[in-house]
């Protein structure tokens, strides 16, 4: 397996996106719309007594949620381009060339990671511009550029590592776009059943005790910490937990994915 082969495949994948505008648009436009609707609709949430984040405008509180949502939406789409190759049979044609199996899969993950990172930067830009519109100041969050890069890396790793692996495994198993899209609501619910949109003290009791089992909750805490408070000690704790969570889950999902792919070859 040569690195130059992976690079050639990676560049080809990136070029492919310009012919898949729906994939790009879908995972970008939906979160932006949500952002605009939610921030206007629920903006009185910040005034609810007892809200620990009451001193932040609601649109800032939900920015991390929208980032995670973009990461998840974008990752559910990460098998779209792969499915095109699987269904035309081109994937198999390439298996008989140096592109073989592993380089094709690795290059696919690399290009999906790149695409997702760019989309995440776009969403962050939108939120910064929205902040300027409301407050009149163009400013980066407390943690600066480094903070934004960390946010993007965390969210993209979670998206591609956890969601992307599962979705790609499903693509190999079913070869069907519908099957892949069908798991979508599952991840959607995962984001809602967390403190993404509402601080925990305002959540119903049962949900407050359930969110500890929701992996996306840990990611949201880390991203929100960086975004709202900067790299404080408590943020660093959240980041450590989020990173461990990503590593453990990605190990599991990539094992599942590896098995599914090797089994799909008779």
């Amino acid at each position: 397996m040569k690195f130059s082969t992976i690079l050639t495949l990676y560049i080809r994948n990136l070029k492919q996106y310009k012919r898949l505008p729906a994939v790009l648009a879908f995972s970008f436009i939906v979160p932006v719309i949500q952002y605009l609707i939610f921030s206007n609709l629920f903006n009185s949430l910040s005034d609810v007594p007892g809200n620990p984040y009451g001193n932040y405008p609601y649109y800032m509180y939900i920015t991390p949620a929208i980032i995670i949502l973009t990461a998840i939406f974008g990752s559910v789409n990460s098998s779209a381009a792969l499915l095109v190759d699987l269904n035309t049979g081109y994937f198999d044609k390439l298996r008989a060339t140096p592109a073989s199996l592993a380089p094709q899969v690795i290059a696919r993950f690399m290009s999906e990671f790149t695409r997702l990172s760019l989309q995440l930067f776009l969403i962050i830009t939108v939120s910064i511009l929205y902040h300027k519109r409301i407050s009149g100041v163009l400013e980066l969050p407390e943690a600066g550029i480094l903070g934004l890069i960390t946010i993007v890396l965390l969210a993209a790793s979670f998206g591609i590592g956890v969601v992307g692996n599962l979705v790609v495994a499903l693509a190999f198993k079913t070869k069907s776009e519908q099957a892949v899209q069908a798991v979508f609501p599952l991840f959607f619910v995962a984001v809602f059943m967390s403190t993404a949109y509402v601080p925990d003290v305002l959540l119903p009791d049962w949900l407050q005790s359930a969110i500890v089992y929701n992996p996306s909750e840990y990611l949201i805490r880390a991203v929100r910490g960086i975004f709202l408070e900067g790299f404080t000690d408590s943020t660093m704790d959240s980041v450590t937990i989020a990173v461990s969570c990503i590593i453990v889950l990605t190990t599991i999902t990539s094992t599942i994915n590896y098995r599914t792919i090797t089994r799909s070859i008779d």
């Binding site: 082969t5 495949l9 070029k15 492919q16 035309t88 994937f91 198999d92 140096p98």
Partner: peptide
């Protein structure tokens, strides 16, 4: 060349050939 000619449906003829040339280094 497989029985079912399955090729990249998102590329042009020239792009596809060039991509295969690059794949072989």
């Amino acid at each position: 060349a497989l029985q079912e000619a399955g090729l990249d449906s998102l590329s042009t003829v020239k792009e596809l050939i060039a991509f295969h040339v690059k794949l072989f280094g």
